[in-house]
Amino acid sequence: MSNKVIKKLANKIRLDLLKMIFNSKSSHIASCLSIVDLLAVLYGKKIIKFNPNKPYLSDRDIFILSKGHAAAALYAVLANVGYFSKRKLLEYGSDNSNFMAHASHKVPGVEFSTGSLGHGLPIACGLAVAKKRKKLSNYIYVINSDGEMAEGSNWEAILFASHHKLDNLILIIDYNKLQSFDSVENTLGIEPMKDKFLSFGWNVYEIDGHNYKSIEQVLLTCKSSKGKPKCIIANTLKGKGISFMENKVEWHYKNPNKIEFDQAVKELIL
């Protein structure tokens, strides 16, 4: 799939999640938008080994969205790569639907339910150990948010992964620099993040999280390097793709009204 096609896929995902969040009057649209390009490359370029017709095949890579509040982005990408019909996305956030507003393992292709932060990476450590003990060559991918790195359980897992040389584990941090209330810097500064991971014994890469070529290249590098777990610090823009939502704290929670929705659709269709 060329980067032109990936761009189209990313745009479809953005439009889908915008409609889902607008219809359900739910939150976290900006948190979804910042990871769309990462997801588009992971799934669109088939960096992740998956088969939508056989979602639970044992020889598959595993993806965990630890920042479960960005579920709309994950459901949208899964629909676009064929796990289920795009019509199902209309259920998002409605009563009695499996498509709940935090990632749900009841949706095909979603491996683990998340929503409470700091769970995905420790689970991924268990999966990575299991794959190694069973001599399977699959990879485990996790996307964490930057604010999520304040959860202590992550650091337990970061210690564990390097001690056990879990080189089949690839952590992507969606570093959009904003959390729910304020900037990361003003809340609980994480810098120097790269040095922290290096000192914990990880391989660390910094990229532009919206540049398809960089995303693909770094993921391929991560897959080929051996001996250490890998962390990709993806510099992203919260709300990416919808101008008035970009880099604005309030769009962590805010739901677009009809005028805002129409304007956002216009921007995405252009």
């Binding site: 491996e111 683990f112 700091g118 769970h119 420790p122 689970i123 991924a124 450590c125 268990g126 999966l127 990575a128 150990v129 299991a130 794959k131 069973k134 202590g152 359980s153 337990e156 897992a157 210690l159 564990f160």
Partner: peptide, 15 residues
């Protein structure tokens, strides 16, 4: 690291 231990257990169990 009991939090990590329990989530690791979940990961292993799912395999």
């Amino acid at each position: 690291a009991e939090q990590n231990m329990t989530s690791i257990a979940a990961g292993l169990a799912s395999e």
